[in-house]
Design a protein around this nucleic acid. Structure first.
Length: 231
DNA sequence: AACCAGGACGTGA
DNA sequence: TCACGTCATGGT
């Protein structure tokens, strides 16, 4: 087994299924997870169950750019109070109202613009799954946000390479710091199982691990893994 | 009180 | 291509 799958096994054995992506309508918490957030559905990979949940995931993906999920959850709750966590609902809100509702999640001016850009794009989809290239053409959707939407909202295998992922794999010495986003993504995708649930869980586990071991802290996964790789 | 949070964009070299 | 400044609120 290759290094990436070994690390995946180790993380999964340590933390268990994570139940991403969290949804306001899901009445469940994951007790193994750090922080007091709700909406996780560990072991249930049938989400999103409808277009409303799909839309909610996309909105959350934009709002969580460089922002903690606890803040994003508050913004989503604010939007939901205005019945604006769906396409038709959010279209009724004025720009100022959107900014006010999402203010808690930071960067609210540009994120309000990004949301409006995405709304136009989402309408044009007519229920179809977008390509990664099409998503990246939308202002405000970069590689990580695009991959988050693809993987969790549209259930399309596209590995998310976020800062946590780079940090851990760099420390482990299994990627090079000169590699760019697409190169890292390709390398990982060539190494891991061709399985949507593995893609989803792997990213969620990496985030959970990073929350437990912030920068500078001792990381048992690393100390146990180093030197044990045998491709 | 500095630092980080489930990044992306615009600019200039 | 890529390094850097900017965007902003909330929690530790």
């Amino acid at each position: 087994m290759n290094s990436f799958m070994k690390i995946y096994r180790k993380l999964f054995d340590s933390y268990g299924p994570q139940g991403w992506w969290p949804l306001l309508s899901v009445d469940g918490t994951n007790p193994t997870k750090t922080g007091a957030v709700q909406g996780y559905h560990p072991g249930d990979y049938t989400y999103p169950k409808d277009e409303q949940q799909q839309f909610e995931i996309c909105v959350g993906a934009i709002l969580t750019q460089n922002t903690s999920w606890t803040s994003v959850e508050k913004a989503l709750i604010n939007l939901n109070k205005s019945n604006a966590l769906n396409l038709k609902g959010i279209k009724r809100l004025s720009d100022g109202k959107i900014r006010e509702r999402i203010k808690v999640s930071g960067y609210y001016n540009q994120k309000a613009k990004y949301l409006k850009e995405f709304i136009k794009f989402y309408e044009s989809l007519q229920g179809k799954v977008p390509s990664r290239e099409a998503l990246l053409e939308v202002k405000g959707i970069g590689p990580e946000t695009a991959d988050s939407m693809l993987l969790f909202a549209f259930k399309t295998k596209s590995f998310i390479v976020d800062s946590y992922t780079k940090r851990l794999f760099l420390k482990l010495g299994i990627i090079d710091k000169k590699m760019n986003y697409d190169e890292i993504q390709r390398f990982i995708e060539e190494s891991i199982d061709d399985d949507l649930t593995v893609y989803q869980e792997y990213h969620a586990l990496l985030v959970e691990h990073a929350k437990r071991f912030p920068k500078g802290e001792i990381d048992p996964i690393i100390s146990q893994f180093k030197g044990t790789s045998s491709s």
